[in-house]
Structures are given as C-alpha cells and as structure tokens.
C-alpha cells in the first residue's frame, strides 16, 4: 500500500530523518517505534506533505512526491496527529464534516457514530470541552471521514488511561479487518508491538532495527531500551 524509499527530512541544520526506507502492506498495521525526538512524527508529517522531504513516497501506484497535503488526503492518506488537534471551538459533528470534503457526509457521520458511540452521544458538544480520550477518538474518526486507504496514527495512546488504550487497540484491529492499512507511530512500544504485524525502530532519525513484532518483542536489546523490562 505505502512504499517509502530513502526518506530524508531536515529542519535547517537539524537532520530529523535520514535515509529511511519502509513499507506498509495492504490491510496491516505497521509501527514506527522510538523515543521522543527519534523522528517518528517527522516521518508521518513527511508522508502527509507537512514537512518537505527527499526520497520517494508512493501510495499504491500514486507518487505522492510534489503533492500538497490536501491532494494527499484525496489520494487516500489520513493522519490523526500527535496531540489530537481537534478543532476545539467546533462541535463534534462539525469536526467530522470538515474532514470529509466531497463524500456522502451524512452517511459517513452515521457510520462514525456507529464505530464511536461516545461521539454520537456528544454530537453537538464543543470538541475542546471533551476529555482526552474522547478527543483522541474524534481525531481518529475525523481522519476516517476522508475514506482513507492508509490511516496514520501519531501517538494515539498519549496520556490516555489504560482502558482507553485498550479501546484504541480494539479499534485498530477492527479497522484492519475492514481492509485499512495503518501506520502507527508510538512511544508505547508494548502497545505498538501488540497491535502491529511489523515494526521499525528509529533512533535519531535513522532506522535501528526492523522485524516482525513478535520477534522484536522477544529481542533483549529492544526489551531493555523500549519495553522497560
């Protein structure tokens, strides 16, 4: 589904991502693991067209290079950003509607409310007044409103209660079954290795390790650095 080759991202003198190659197969979840500042968010921003990147990024047969963010969204990429970034002074429903230019919105909204009953109950509530977990669900639902082929989740469990983290895991599995490909950037390595089939470990913008999640989870070095065991 997604092919990223020799990705490089610089901010001035700072090299955030260096020569990173990876891919996300159809209907699977791939995780990017690493500590704060390892470059995970930069990778997602690069794919989204929010940071200028070198190298090649392809979604299916579409070359995303040179496309603007909104064109990438039309091409089938969606992002639930780190820190959620919901439109704080708009209602839940308006948040969803903004994320769905050019689709059958009412049907999609109904679908989202089916997937996230909590949001349905709070249709008219102002997004900024909801709890962190609800905002996270809204951010994911908003991303799904553009009917993406690839959903990118940036730190979806950040600051959430364990029970909500479990809900996110359940959700990711549901979405995979529906045929969506998912790229997950997470510091919470245990959660990421649990939900993803394959993972890439980043350190200071470079690829450090990659492999099947199960293998990585058993790897002593990974356990020590990222699982806190």
């Amino acid at each position: 589904m997604l092919q990223v080759e020799r990705l490089g991202i610089r901010y001035g003198a700072v090299e955030a991502v260096d020569n990173l190659t990876f891919h996300v197969p159809d209907s699977t979840c791939v995780a990017l693991i690493g500590s704060n500042g390892a470059g995970k968010s930069s990778v997602l921003k690069g794919i989204m067209g929010l940071a200028s990147a070198t190298g090649s990024i392809r979604l299916g047969n579409t070359d995303l290079g040179g496309l603007k963010s909104h064109q990438r969204v039309s091409a089938g990429i969606a992002l639930s950003p780190e820190g959620r970034h919901v439109f704080a002074d708009m209602s839940v429903k308006e948040n969803l509607l903004v994320g769905a230019a050019g689709h059958d919105r009412e049907a999609l909204v109904t679908e989202m409310f089916g997937l996230f009953p909590r949001l349905g109950e709070r249709e008219k509530q102002i997004a900024g007044s909801m709890s962190g977990g609800e905002q996270q669900m809204l951010a994911i639902a908003r991303a799904l409103m553009s009917k993406p082929k690839l959903l990118m989740l940036d730190e979806p469990t950040m600051g959430l209660a364990p029970i909500i983290v479990d809900q996110v895991i359940v959700l990711i599995n549901v979405l995979k079954k529906r045929g969506l490909s998912i790229l997950l950037a997470e510091q919470n390595a245990e959660m990421a290795l649990e939900v993803a089939e394959h993972a890439y470990v980043l350190e200071t913008g470079r690829l450090k390790r990659e492999g099947a999640s199960a293998d990585l989870a058993r790897d002593p070095a990974i356990q020590e650095d990222y699982l806190g065991l």
């Binding site: 364990p162 479990d166 359940v170 959700l171 599995n173 079954k177 919470n188 245990e190 699982l227 806190g228």
Partner: peptide
C-alpha cells in the same frame, strides 16, 4: 509497571475486536 512501563492486556480484549 501497569500504567507506565506497559499494560498487560488480556488476550480476550483483542479477540473481542473481531
């Protein structure tokens, strides 16, 4: 350990996802 270093989730939660 539970909250920070990683939760130990039950298998059934994941199975329930299907």
């Amino acid at each position: 350990i539970e909250a920070y270093l990683g939760t130990s989730r039950k298998e059934e939660t994941i199975n329930a996802a299907g």
